[in-house]
Amino acid sequence: MSQSLTNRLLLAKWWKIVAIVLMCYTLTAGLLMPVPKLDILNETIRNAYFHVPMWFGMMLILLMSLIYSIKYLRTGNLRYDYVAIEAAKVGVLYGLLGLTTGMIWAKFTWGAAWNGDPKQNMAAIAMLMYLAYIVLRGSITDQDRRAKVSSVYNIFAFVALFPLLYIVPRLTDSLHPSSGGNQGFVAYDMDGWMRLVFYPAIIAWTFLGLWVASLNVRATYIEEGISLES
């Protein structure tokens, strides 16, 4: 039953159309719609539409990778393992893009691309964790063993991600919005106009990432000779 759900979602068109429409909206409205005029931030506040959704998207896609790793361990079906790895790869891509957009923003507002801010450091370490997951997969040739070992690591890594990204940075001072003594974007400067773009942007980026992952999954299925219909 759930097997066919995975396949139905892989083939379904509606969410890809939603991704395209919302993506066009995000790119145009995100750059053209009015934003609050704030000191220091100025127009860089628009980064909220591009940087913040990267982290939302990354977490959602990595959560999906986790769910498929658990499904693999429960069933031993290699299809699930391929979904898990492709989702993790897109998660890493989003993480790197999140770091890059954050660094560009930090250059303008904090004065330097890398200030050793706890959130930056922790995000970089999270990327190392998932890059290690990809290296681990590369080092094992036997498919079943690779799937099993890397699923176990994926679950372990995801759980380690939480103290890393959410708890530890809150313990130390940080310039980052929504941590340390600073309030979040949402709390103090996101007005109605920004919300109109921000929430669709999150959906658009997440669906776009899922689309990239789903294409890679289908390519792997073709390489491995797995049919989608069964």
Binding site: I125, A132, L136, Y153, F156, A160, L164
Partner: peptide, 10 residues
């Protein structure tokens, strides 16, 4: 080492 260091940092 690759697997362990990032995980142990927190």
């Amino acid at each position: 080492a690759i697997l362990g260091f990032p995980l142990i940092i927190p």
